[in-house]
């Protein structure tokens, strides 16, 4: 389990990163916290010719609150965000979900944006981005663009990012007065979710977002529903997500969790 050979570029400016990506395209990989990429390299599932280490770039390390949005740079580690004093106030859902990402020893290095770039369907940060309706800030050597969360995730570990783009950061809305709830079921503490659910009160009712079931985290908005109407809506949603079996859980079990946890969380945020 030793990685294949690659060049290593320690970027000293964003320009270095974008040039590297422009030149090497699909053969280059951004190295952020390494908590996913390095395991993949050790298993020789990935064979980039170039790794571009972005973690020395001060300008990517910022967490900025600007009015009703929070911008989180690509160099912000999961532990940095957890330690951000405004987190609970500005991004209560993130505060609830982030401790579920791996372990203290992986959050200390793994980045928020790396988790989004990696786009594991069971990962908590993509779910949170979708639940909050955030945006991904992409940039290549020529231009910048913003992609809405729901358009960013294209499939299992597939995103709208092109090979030559850096995720510079993300933008998350601060939703005033919103109550949020989050729950996750995994085989063991710290594992990727079998099912993760996030719920939020919205101006028109409630939003439920689910990770770990469909190929991408998926959100659904409902008006205030109760009783059997809510049960029916949850049941329909659970089936629409197209759950499948794997060694850790069955499709039916996943649907059960969507129905049961979804109901609990919606109750929690609406009470």
């Amino acid at each position: 389990m030793k990685p294949p050979a690659f060049d290593y570029l320690r970027a000293e400016s964003i320009g270095d990163v974008l040039d590297g990506l422009a030149q090497q395209g699909g053969d280059a990989r951004v190295l952020a916290g390494g908590q996913s990429l390095m395991a993949m390299l050790n298993m020789r599932l990935a064979k980039p010719k170039l790794l571009i280490d972005i973690m020395r770039l001060e300008e990517l390390r910022k967490i900025q609150r600007k009015g009703d949005t929070v911008i989180i740079g690509a160099g912000v580690r999961q532990a940095d965000l957890l330690a951000w004093p405004d987190l609970v106030d500005a991004l209560p859902l993130v505060a609830l979900a982030l401790p579920w990402v791996g372990h203290m020893q992986t959050r200390s290095r793994g980045t928020i944006c790396g988790s989004l770039a990696h786009a594991d369907p069971s990962a908590e940060m993509p779910l949170t981005l979708v639940a909050l309706g955030g945006e991904v800030l992409l940039r290549n050597a020529k231009r910048r663009r913003r992609v809405a969360a729901k358009d960013f995730f294209a499939g299992m570990m597939l995103t709208a990012r092109s090979d030559d783009e850096l995720i510079e950061g993300i933008s998350l809305p601060v939703i005033k007065g919103s109550r949020a709830a989050f729950r996750e079921v995994a085989r063991r503490h710290g594992d990727f979710a079998i099912v993760a659910c996030a719920a939020m009160k919205t101006s028109t009712g409630v939003r439920l977002a689910v990770g770990g079931v469909a190929d991408v985290p998926t959100a659904r908005d409902w008006p205030r529903l109760e009783g059997s109407a809510l049960d029916d809506a949850l049941n329909a949603f659970a089936y629409e997500l197209g759950a499948r079996d794997d060694v850790h859980a069955t499709a039916r079990y996943r649907r059960d969790l969507v129905r049961m946890i979804g109901r609990d969380l919606i109750g929690e945020v609406l009470q």
Partner: peptide, 20 residues
Amino acid sequence: TIIVDGMLTRSCLTLAAQVE
């Protein structure tokens, strides 16, 4: 697991070149 610049770090998920 070791400590790099005050961060808990899996040394198996880190390149030697990264800790220069």
